[in-house]
Amino acid sequence: MASISARGLRIEFPLYHLAARSLKKRLLAKAAIRLKTDESNRVVVSALSELTFDISRGERVALIGTNGAGKTTLLRTLAGIYEPVAGQLEVHGEVGSLIDPAAGIDSDSTGRENIVLRGLYRGMSESQIALLEADAAEFAGLGEFLDMPTRGYSAGMQVRLSFAIATAITPQILLMDEWFLAGDADFMLKAEERLTRLVTGADILVIATHDMNVVRRWCTRVIKLEAGRIIGDGTVDEILGPAGA
């Protein structure tokens, strides 16, 4: 059964290109909260610290917090991109991450080639890629432009293509950054059904967002982050107050 379990998770970003001592001193002088030096005397930003939580099957979790609170970093950690410097993380289930729309898009390739490329990135077999191609091509609705290099696409077309490629998956654990909900109104109308299907089809959803409507609509649980720490974890009503209040 899909589940995520984190114990004392800590992620630190070393600031390698800060060699100058004076700069280092200045940064650390002002009672720094998130900047510190690690054991090899490098300046590090503590991006996430002491995160402990369990997410089990059926939960739809919203990560909220101000910019820089660590929401996207946590998503990337769950996706296995950043490895923690302390703590444990256990993720059971196939993970699909929708973090950056443009990740792996090659602007010199046509839309269709990009769909195939993404299939390869995901390690799909040829028959799976053919299905992906049919599905994404149909949803993107780019018509003849599908066989044109994406370099020449309008911004809207690019969003449609990335969205179509990214959402043509059925993962058990869906990690999502909020850009996926930030399309223009027309597009969102069309995307709605597909997104709902994806979100409700996943066993676990973790979404980083600023939009409280999204939280209330889709989520059952809220984890509130501040400066890389969890400052609130509970049901939507517990954290945000009762609906309509």
């Binding site: 059964m1 800590r10 296995g80 923690p84 703590g87 444990q88 256990e90 196939e94």
Partner: peptide, 23 residues
């Protein structure tokens, strides 16, 4: 979106990382 029951029973891909014991 439909996943057959047999597949759900199958061993799930697991990603486990422990900073104390990084292997």
């Amino acid at each position: 979106m439909y996943r057959p029951a047999a597949m759900q029973q199958a061993v799930l891909p697991t990603y486990h990382i422990d900073a104390e014991n990084p292997d």
